[in-house]
């Protein structure tokens, strides 16, 4: 019984401590997402509406990877290289972080927060490329 009462007091104390902490500090951990370099168009900030990108960018990267590699289909609107070029921004000293080096890398900021693995960069580079004029073959529209 004493143990139960003690546990009861302890849990109330913990709740109270959390409450006091939360309200006084008011710090909800949030991902620090760097701003992209430019907008896609006047109406739209990214290649698809922002809500859509937040939920489904994985589909473009993963499913289009399949289309690109297995079926030779390439599109200009959804390209990993273009994502990286626009979204990965330099730090104070002007260096671009790789996804492994810095938690401020655009991809990593959310992926670490949500504990989702990224396997893109086991093959691809996570830094912007200086000259992005690779021959990408015949381009198909969606």
């Amino acid at each position: 019984m004493k143990i139960l009462k003690f546990l009861g007091k302890l849990s109330c104390g913990l709740l109270l401590a959390m409450a006091v902490n939360g309200v006084s500090a008011g710090e909800v951990p949030m991902p620090e997402i760097p701003k992209a370099k430019s907008n896609f168009s006047a109406e739209q900030s990214c290649v698809e509406p922002t809500d859509f990108m937040r939920q489904r960018h994985g589909l473009f990267l993963k499913h289009y990877r399949h289309d690109t590699m297995r079926r030779g289909m390439r599109t200009l609107q959804h390209s990993l290289v273009a994502c990286i070029n626009c979204h990965v921004t330099a730090d104070e000293s002007g260096n671009y972080p790789t996804v492994h080096q810095s938690s401020k890398h655009f991809c990593r900021s959310c992926h670490t927060y949500a504990a989702v693995n990224i396997d893109c960069f086991q093959c691809h580079t996570s830094k912007p490329q200086e000259s992005f004029s690779v021959d990408i073959g015949p381009v198909q529209s969606d």
Binding site: M18, G22, V23, V28, Q55, Y113, A114
Partner: peptide
């Protein structure tokens, strides 16, 4: 159907922190 899990986590953490200005 997918959802924005990053925003959802922010919502849950704001509940846990008793930050009544909920995300």
């Amino acid at each position: 159907t997918r959802t924005d899990i990053v925003q959802f986590k922010a919502f849950i953490l704001s509940l846990l922190c008793f930050d009544f200005n909920w995300q």
